Amino acid sequence: MRYLISYKRLIWLLVFACFFWLMLRITIRYIPAQSDVSFLQIKQTEVIGVKGYLLVFYIHVYSAIFVLLAGFTQFNSHILAKYPKIHRSLGYLYTGTVLVLAAPSGIFIGWFANGGLTAKISFVLLGLLWFWFTIKSILLILKRNVKGHQSFMYRSFALATSAITLRLWKVILVYLFHPAPIDVYQIIAWLGWIPNLLIAEWIIKNKTTQ
């Protein structure tokens, strides 16, 4: 049993390392902040024509890595059992960053997403659900509903990881099918987060039936 626990921890650490490395690579592209680097090269209409777009975009990009770092620790049973204060502090960091910075900025820039109305709706919905799941998790833990809190944190973090998964899906789709750019954006807008949420629901159901 001890070996099984160690094996699960190793897998968790490897997943975290992979996700963190990918997120770090994305973030580094935008340091120092510029108006025409990487993804912003195809968003010049918004950068020039939408007041505050560039600032909100960088708030979203820079806050995402803190969300990922803090979020991964929230599901570590060892930290929760041995270091509850660290769990609580990083929980404050995660929820505060999501509610104040990451989710609101994601909703804003989501409305200007490539891919037309289909993609816009998806990204705005993603941001709204992310905000709601996160604040719901806080309300539940304040009522000392630990299971409910954990369930909504799983849902919240599933949406947080969409920053990585939508880029992975983009690489897969382009490599396998070579679709038109607008089709790619419309597909990954939904594919980037719905499977994540379904996985979270499976984990929640699995835990409640154990």
Rank of each mutant, 00 (worst) to 15 (best):
L93H: 08
W130S: 05
N145S: 11
K51C: 00
V67L: 09
G91L: 04
S63H: 00
L129M: 12
D36W: 09
H60G: 00
Y30K: 03
I79A: 00
V61K: 04
V50E: 01
R88C: 12
Y62E: 05
M153D: 06
W169L: 14
W130K: 03
I48R: 10
R29A: 15
I138M: 07
S156C: 05
K82Y: 02
Y94L: 11
L54P: 09
F66M: 13
I79C: 02
S151D: 13
I164W: 13
K120H: 12
G148N: 05
H149M: 09
A81C: 08
V100L: 12
I42Y: 14
N114W: 13
F72A: 01
E46P: 00
L166C: 14
K170R: 15
T134I: 01
K85Q: 12
L129R: 04
Y53F: 09
K51V: 00
T27K: 07
L117E: 13
F152E: 10
V47K: 02
Y53H: 01
L90K: 06
V100I: 12
Q44K: 07
V100N: 04
G115Y: 11
W169C: 12
I28D: 10
F57L: 03
Y53V: 01
L142Y: 09
I42L: 14
S137C: 06
L125I: 13
G91T: 05
K143V: 06
N114L: 14
L168C: 11
S35F: 02
R29M: 14
G71M: 04
G110M: 05
L93W: 11
F133W: 04
H78G: 07
T118S: 14
R144E: 14
G127D: 05
Q34T: 12
S89C: 13
H78T: 11
I42D: 15
L139V: 07
V37K: 08
S151E: 13
L139S: 12
A64S: 10
F66S: 10
L90P: 05
G116Y: 11
T73R: 07
V56K: 00
N114K: 15
Y92P: 14
G52E: 00
H60V: 02
V56P: 00
F112H: 09
I42F: 13
R144V: 13
L90E: 11
L90W: 08
T134S: 05
A119L: 08
A103Q: 02
K136P: 06
T165W: 12
Y62K: 07
F123R: 02
L68Y: 09
L117A: 15
L68K: 07
T118Y: 15
G110E: 02
V37I: 13
I86F: 08
I109N: 01
L80S: 13
K43W: 12
G106H: 02
V67W: 07
T161S: 10
V50R: 00
A158E: 03
L168T: 12
T95V: 11
P104I: 02
F152D: 09
S137N: 03
L99A: 03
P32I: 03
H149E: 08
L128Q: 11
I86H: 10
V124K: 09
I65Y: 08
L166W: 11
W130H: 07
Y92H: 12
S105T: 01
F112Q: 04
L140G: 04
Y94Q: 08
K170E: 15
K136N: 05
S89R: 15
R155P: 13
T27C: 10
S156E: 08
G71P: 07
L140E: 10
